[in-house]
Nucleic acid binder design. Structure first.
Lengths: 346, 346
DNA sequence: GTTTTGACTGCAATCGATTACATTTATATC
DNA sequence: GATATAAATGTAATCGATTGCAGTCAAAAC
């Protein structure tokens, strides 16, 4: 099967290849009559543009990479969906790369940019170190990279996320408002910036309220269902147990509740639980989960939009120090449902 | 910032560009000494290969497109994860495209192939019509397309999936074994091949057993949580209700259970439910869901592997009629958990 | 009627790596 | 040592579209 090129179209339309190219990508630069002729020739020949050739010539990749830690985690699906909706609108493709994959070279995350495989990077993995990139790039421009739900130590990179401290604070205040005075927490991965931010918000909210919290109420975890289940087991054997618990992810909360169910205990009768994320199933769990909502689709859209502006040079938020614009912080809200209840007198 | 090319490396290493290219892509074709020289030059210059240029010359895209209907649906995340694990191993990138996106041209799904944007297609959307592709391609070769969890009307395309009839059958037999004689079903989208296959399995299993089923026990739906909730409402107002229900997706089952919970009813006390898919949360729902397991990660891996073999020409399963090899059917099994119970005497 | 202007169009170089073919160099054989 | 053979390297064309520059031509201006 012979592949049809601009040449063939040019011959059929009886114009030069230059004209064909222009008729296709900048129609206004070509007379009506010619444009018709070219279009007709395209139809006749069944021509389809070769993106690779175009990209080579234009020095672009036509794609954006999303670096996701563990693609299998459904938390990311809505975010990706939001990203894809904006990118496809703009005619860019979305390359998905699992940064937790065995073969993934963490220090090579930026080769996508250098190798012309991507015009920009969306980082959904906060544990990725961007310093190699910063070092490699000698210019003053910040490379087209946007963090998504995360952010880097290097504040020069743009990011789109929610106010994690505030989210944790809302959770604490909610539990407090229901009468809980013994409030614990199940954490995400120890080295994770999200964990750190939420922990900070949690602790400072408690401090503001005037409550303390023993270390034994701070359960280690990693955002997973299993971590929640394990925390539940630790919680059960505690001498003195918290009556309300802030979970750093919905999955943790589900694991916790599920494990309690196995023990014959239930939520919110035996303990009140607040989650984080508001993934789809949260409102339909039994009981429906009270949780801090992250607008994931919107975060994805926002991040993709920001990246596009970077790529196209419509840089509202460059290295020049405009911190406001660089860091987009979307509002969080607490979805109050039935996994939390007023503390019943024992 | 000047971009480094083979030229630059060639100059530094004092060899020709051809040698540089060979040293990099076919090291065995070059003497040790030269290879060293080239590698050193690469190090000095900080050279990174330009994938676009390579792809243009090699007439390949270096990527595979996954067509997903609604990326936001977590059902797909493990499948994509399986796909990505195999592709990244093979050095191919994964392009994710949402076929339910507003701007998506359903009849143009194959342009990815023609436009050199992808070397192959993984179709996770059974409602996509591949006939335009078949027509466009004049040759006898079947294009590199693999269905994933789905399959097309045109049997010439490869697919990786489970035995959906068998899955439905397992569900029915399980309910029957527990004493249920009134068995209903909540369906997926009406036009979907998966729905059709599962319905067929369901009905034929009932027939085999010698049970009938009134139309009013066949609830319409679309795989979503909301569909499950709606089915529950319909179920409730029935004069005579089925005591066991086969849900065509786990999400349907969750929606159903959640809605029952709102009504003050519960599973399995008031009705037994079997799901389909065994998504991650199924085993941790309250109650844990009895469901037909689809090995999603493996399906993804298998499909990606099959596609790679196609692309590389290692075609064990070509159009020549080897049906066995073309259609990979992975085993299903029933995960018996606590959403089903023996029918209690009323 | 001549010049100016601007809209179209065409020529040919270009993007950066690969590879067929030619040429040189090294090794093996007698 | 001469020849045959194999290995290593270089030359230059190629993949397919884009675009700077220059040329053509008609409408507008004088």
């Amino acid at each position: 099967m012979k592949v049809v090129t601009v040449q063939d179209v040019a011959v059929v339309a009886d114009v030069s290849t230059a004209t064909v190219s222009r008729a296709l990508s900048k129609p206004e630069k070509v007379s009506n009559a010619t444009r018709e002729k070219v279009m007709e020739a395209v139809r006749i020949t069944g021509y389809r543009i070769n993106q690779t050739a175009r990209n080579l010539r234009r020095q672009q990749a036509g794609a954006v990479v999303a670096l996701v830690p563990n693609l299998g985690n459904p938390f990311f699906s809505s975010i990706l969906s939001g990203i894809e909706s904006v990118l496809s609108e703009a005619g860019l493709r979305l390359l998905v790369v699992d940064s937790a994959q065995a073969g993934f070279q963490r220090d090579r995350a930026f080769d996508f940019l250098f190798m012309n495989q991507a015009d920009g990077l969306l980082v959904l993995d906060g544990s990725l170190d961007l310093r190699p990139l910063t070092d490699a790039v000698q210019t003053l421009d910040v490379p087209p990279v946007v963090y998504c739900c995360e952010w880097g130590a290097d504040g020069r990179y743009a990011s789109v996320r929610i106010d994690n401290q505030q989210g944790a604070k809302l959770a604490v205040e909610h539990l407090f408002g229901l009468g809980h005075r013994q409030i614990g927490m199940v954490c995400g991965p120890a080295d994770n910036p999200l964990t750190a931010a939420r922990e900070e918000g949690f602790l400072s909210a408690l401090t503001d309220i005037g409550l303390g919290v023993p270390d034994s109420w701070l359960f280690e975890g990693d955002f997973s269902i299993e971590a929640g289940a394990q925390a539940a087991r630790h919680w059960q054997v505690l001498e003195e147990r918290p009556t309300g618990i802030f979970c750093m992810s919905d999955e943790i909360a589900f694991g916790f509740m599920s494990e309690l169910d196995r023990m014959g205990l239930s939520v919110p009768d035996d303990v009140s639980l607040v989650g984080f994320d508001d993934i789809e199933i949260a409102s339909r769990f039994i009981p429906p989960l009270t949780t801090v909502r992250q607008p994931r689709f919107e975060i994805g859209q926002e991040a993709a939009g920001k990246l596009l502006r970077r790529i196209n040079g419509t840089v509202e938020d460059c290295a020049s120090g405009n911190n406001q614009a660089r860091q987009t912080v979307l509002p969080v809200n607490l979805m109050v449902r039935r996994s939390t209840a007023a503390l019943s007198e024992p």
